[in-house]
Nucleic acid binder design. Structure first.
Lengths: 199, 199, 199, 199
DNA sequence: CGGTAACCGAGACGGTACGTCAAGTCTTCAA
DNA sequence: TTGAAGACTTGACGTACCGTCTCGGTTACCG
């Protein structure tokens, strides 16, 4: 994806050094100890260069995660479609559950959520840039299943998505309960049962 | 509940002044701006008195919320039981959804979650003291319904609870989607449909 | 005297504000109650700016006194020389004795000595910057008297100086005995008698 | 000397434990780091017991030094008298100079002086309890010499004492110059020369 | 000779200041 | 003319001690 520079003057070298440094530090230290000074030092950049382009530490962290999760080929996210919605959802939810167990994914998401919880502006950005694209892809896959008669016609697909993912978040956030493949499978089976097409 | 003092010497006056001040400040200012110094000043207490009894700001905030939510008559939480599980769950989830919309509840929960996300120790405390008792009460009500033949016999009640509450958390946390009574109703209907007793 | 800045970046405004504030506070409050925070507040300066450039409160106080006592025209101190060593010494010692009685001089010297007593590093600085220049001037004047045949040729001039000033310090420090002009005169007469030229 | 207890109830055990602890700590740590809490802890005593009997840290330190220097047999101090004032003074001043070079004497004196410099009340106590008895003994020895015709009849003996000891203090305090036996000898010879009997 | 009051060790309390860290702003200097 | 370097003010951190104040537990005097 061609990056639209915020300004023609902006140094791409500095920008990416800052985001890389942020990503590294998020993985290395407790989030509460992540400081703008440390990011600047690690990136070999003056503090002012960070303050010039980002309004808060949360925004930097957010951009760092965004840059990481962005699809490099510019295409949007797409869920697998083998024609079997149950199998496909199990594949995806098992992957999701595995990600949450991997510190490399866990740490930056917790970092971003720490900021998102208390900052409505960042929350809006989060919804728009991170949540919505993924959510839409899930809805697209469910719509295909609906068209194929695998989900009841009146199913509220947004609700279906939240029923699939909400319980995962619920358990992941306070590290309660077990997050494993069998939990993912049970989730998919239960939710699909609720939306099974009426005979 | 009889409070077991951490020490015979501990001043109950100071302890409760600190928790009250914390509760007030959480409601008044952005959480990021809540400082131990401000709590101490508001409570009319030396900073050391806070540091003596709590290991971190998060722990104080947690205790403040805990003290607030503790049932004063010592009894545990209990969900209503009119015999109609659907009606009862709708009542409870509508109340939950309303709470999340009320800043008086919203602010302290966001404050606690901010800490819980990044502190496993606090997360364990959160699960034990805040989540588990409520979760158990929900499971108890569902078990009664199950015995009454309103839920299928093989239903995993922990999963039922997470399917009911997960989607709410999911939407509340990043302030996405609408959280209203009709959402609560739809949730209850969908989840009960998934666990409807097999004929 | 051209001040050699410790660093090109150092703010002269802050530096002199700190020294001035220190001088004022030394005169206003008991030395034990003089705090870095009070100096910073009075100077309108961050505490860090003090800690950046001075290692201890004693060093700040020392610099404040040094800045005050420094000869603005860059010239060194010089004792009067009317040709009559007895008269000149009496003039100087009477002035010294008067200074010690004046709180404006007494307070800062006591402040500096409080630190010098216990800090060998500061003591070295004290000897070099405050004591030595004045001591040397006294020796210079005595040397002139010696050349004029007013002092015996083999007189140890360092000893002469200490015999003249030691008794003053001795009485001033614990506020014992009387420190007045007649004491100064008696001192001069006695010491000169000990070093009277041999016929 | 029979100690007059401040109160019949006062625990002699605590009193001496405090003074001993203080003496030890003065010798071990930099004086600025000597705290009442440390004294209480070392002495195995409650802080209140210190505050009950002494008004300030300086007073404790002063008492500790006083207890140490007090003549155990209750007799006052007396200078040696061999009949030769020059020899006797050299003996005494050489001892004094040696004491100042010994950290076991140096540290507590510096500690007491630190307080005496800034506290007139303590200064008065210092003069009365520590300085005056020794000063008086010196004057007694000089008076004997005067009667023996070794000092001029009109000599101001207080001045003689200060001329002998002032220069030592002068050099000792800021650790300037050399303090050795030859300095002591030179001092004695010079001062006695100033007060040599007139033929 | 039993009660009571002052002392004791212990340590929590409300405070003040410490010395450090980082935030966000502003200035200097080299490329 | 940008951007690194870093000094600046501000303010909170977490700690150390201050001097005061209970708290039980002796201890010694007194009635």
């Amino acid at each position: 994806m061609a990056r639209t520079p915020d300004s023609a003057r902006r140094s791409e070298r500095s920008r990416s050094a800052i985001l890389t440094a942020t990503r590294e530090l998020v993985g290395e230290t407790a989030y509460a100890k992540l400081t703008i000074e440390a990011i600047a030092a690690r990136a070999g950049v003056g503090k002012q260069t960070i303050y010039r382009w980002w309004p808060s530490k949360g925004a930097v962290v957010f951009d760092a995660l965004l840059a990481q999760s962005e699809n490099p080929d510019g295409g949007g996210v797409e869920l697998p479609d083998t024609g079997d919605i149950a199998a496909d959802l199990k594949t995806v939810l098992r992957a999701t559950v595995a990600e949450f167990a991997d510190p490399a994914f866990d740490a930056p998401i917790r970092a971003v959520l720490t900021e998102v919880i208390n900052d409505p502006t960042l929350a809006a950005l989060y919804r728009e840039k991170l949540e919505q694209p993924v959510h839409a892809a899930k809805v697209r896959r469910l719509a295909a299943a609906q068209r194929a008669g695998q989900l009841r016609a009146d199913a509220d697909l947004d609700l279906v998505v939240d029923l699939l993912y909400g319980p995962i978040t619920q358990r992941w956030l306070p590290r309660s309960g077990t997050l494993d493949a069998s939990f993912a499978d049970a989730l998919v089976e239960t939710v699909l049962r609720a939306f099974a097409p009426v005979d």
